[in-house]
Design a binder for these strands. Structure first.
Lengths: 175, 175
DNA sequence: GGAATATAGTCTGTAATACAACATAAGTTT
DNA sequence: AAACTTATGTTGTATTACAGACTATATTCC
């Protein structure tokens, strides 16, 4: 639709550069653009959820990765522990998760989804998946798969390369 | 390096899912991870620059896209106009850009790089390009090119699809 | 031409947010 | 058991985004 008409004046890049040679810094611009577009749709998809996107991500992480404690959860999502405290307060208040004493370590709390939490997550996952598909609309299925593969591979690599600045650091504690 | 050894316990995904089938919401997680890793390296690369990454992006946009006025600049980068005012104040104070009256519209200011600004940008671009390459280290050159292509294509598509929520809206005024 | 309206930029105040610093309880080491 | 570390929670502070008001200039419509 409306593909290569006109002169692509609005392109942030020189129209027909083959792309491996982006202006330095453009990668961040494109990533930011995609992430912003994604966040917009994502937030809309999960508007029922307290704390919006992060609420969804916390609940999803709890259900799918079963982190051993709050710290592992926060580290996975890059959320500071002091921030996590009040984000979780909201989810608890909404009855979506509970803080239960961790069996192996009485200092720690394990976050578990309630029945309602699991149900809400299941319901929202369909909406989120649809939002992600909508975002990728302009890519064909091969491109989407390629992008998913590359993005996954790269994020793993980044995780391994700089564990300090990186939420995945504590992934080893997960599950 | 260290590829498929062990069980990939730290992976946020089921170890051997073929990736097109991510958990709903994982795309955002991976994108966020990449962007965060990028920002870390990026910020380090441009530490000389006032306002850090955004300072660099503003200066880069001014030089490479020559936006007609502040609004176009801010829209391109997704920066609110009231915020842009004081970010630009910093760049002006550092002698990197100037606000000159726009020739066609006396309400507007055109942002132009000073000699020092252009020189600093040139110097930092090498560092930023190196940082981006370092980020992509784990991808081979074909994969990097693929990623750049897909990311560019997708960000353009997003721009076209939702102009409202999107910084590119005002790209038409640029250049 | 001139009133009404729209737009570019700035300034001010407010609300959200992250984070540092401290506090507490429980595990670990020596 | 004394000293140290870790997991979480609490409080205060600084940053940051953004809404709203304001000025100056453009544009539109009569």
């Amino acid at each position: 639709m409306m593909g290569a008409m006109a002169s692509l004046q609005h392109s942030p890049l020189a129209p027909d550069k083959p792309l491996p040679g982006l202006i330095p810094g453009d990668l961040a611009w494109h990533l930011g653009m995609i992430l912003r577009g994604h966040q917009t749709r994502f937030a809309e998809a999960v508007e029922e959820m307290p704390c919006s996107v992060r609420g969804y991500q916390m609940l999803s992480t709890v259900v799918h990765h079963d982190p051993a404690n709050q710290q592992a959860l926060g580290a996975h999502l890059g959320i500071d522990r002091t921030v996590l405290t009040y984000l979780l307060d909201d989810l608890v208040a909404a009855g979506l998760v509970e803080r239960v004493p961790a069996p192996t370590d009485r200092r720690a709390r394990k976050i578990v989804a309630t029945k309602q939490g699991a149900a809400l997550l299941k319901r929202l996952e369909a909406r989120v998946a649809a939002a992600e598909q909508a975002l990728l609309t302009e890519l064909d299925s091969i491109e989407s798969a390629q992008l998913a593969r590359l993005v996954s591979k790269l994020s793993m690599a980044i995780h391994r390369a700089q564990p300090g600045a990186n939420p995945c650091e504590a992934m080893d504690h997960l599950g």
